[in-house]
Amino acid sequence: MIETEEMGTLFKKIRLSKKLSLKDVAGDYLSVSFLSKFERGESEITLSRFLLLLDNLDVSIEEFYGILSKGHATKTEKLIEKVSKSFQENNLLALKKYYKEEIGAYNETGNKTYLYNAIMIESFMVSLTGETITEEKVSHITDYLFGIEQWGKRELIIFGNSMTAISTEALNILIKEIVYKTVLFGNDESNKRIRIGLVINAISVYLDREQLELAKLYLDIISDMSIPETFLYERFEYRFLLGLYWIKSGKIAIGKKKVESALGSIRALGVENLLIAREDIYENILGSLK
């Protein structure tokens, strides 16, 4: 939980970095003494007044809380960090441990948050074992996601890391929600990156399932969204997946050219683990053509 003291400390840090006095920022909205107390964490402040102060700082609330939240990862974010690390290291024992902890907490409390976490972890496990998740468990995830009107970071994390377990039909409906719910996500850069990343993940799943029409549909949508030049990873993944699509569609020469161009770019950046993983996918697809 973010405390008032932390908010005040960050506010003061930003104010001083802009060389603004307490009086400059307080304006006509509140007294200098009150603002000083807020910066010291001694007084709370209403949201309306806080927004006015941010306006005087020329800082958006998204920017302020983006900076503030960097050191406040949610429980789900902390869990997914541990799970992702174990998955990348092929550490099935660690994944089973995390799964057992979450399912145990669910059985003890009945809190479905733990159940959703456990199923999410299981989706990582089956990627290593080749097994499948039961339909009942997958329905828990999809029912939960369909039942949420306004997705937050938690729902995005669960969805993004459970895609491989979700049916093609349900996945397509959920991805459309991501693409077209502009009221929820807005159009700032960080939200655009989330949207593009989730659609890219879905394209990868569609290609694995040989759902080429759906893969092409969302490749075109990504193209229309126009990936910013600063999104290097997303631009690489788009070109790589587009190449795989053309290979699977029978236009092998075109596909190989795009894939090898993408691999060349990532090779130049020196991201070795990503390069090895994508080269392995590429070699397996070429091998399946023989």
Rank of each mutant, 00 (worst) to 15 (best):
E3D: 03
T4Y: 04
E6G: 06
L10C: 09
R15F: 05
K19Q: 09
L20K: 15
L22P: 07
K23L: 12
Y29G: 09
Y29A: 14
L30S: 09
S31P: 15
K37C: 14
E42S: 09
L57F: 04
G66R: 11
S69I: 12
G71T: 13
A73Q: 11
K75W: 04
S84E: 12
F87G: 12
Q88R: 15
L95A: 09
N107D: 04
E108Q: 15
E108G: 02
T109N: 02
T113F: 13
N117P: 02
M120S: 08
T132Q: 10
H140M: 08
T142A: 04
I148H: 02
I148S: 05
W151E: 02
W151M: 12
K153Y: 02
I157M: 10
T164G: 05
T164I: 12
A165K: 02
I173G: 00
K176G: 12
L184Q: 11
L184A: 07
N187E: 10
N191I: 02
K192C: 03
K192S: 05
R193V: 00
I194L: 12
V199T: 03
V205G: 02
Q211R: 04
L214Q: 04
I221G: 01
T230Y: 00
Y233N: 12
R235S: 15
E237F: 11
K257G: 00
K257D: 09
R267K: 13
L269V: 14
G270Q: 04
L275T: 11
E279D: 04
Y282L: 04
Y282T: 05
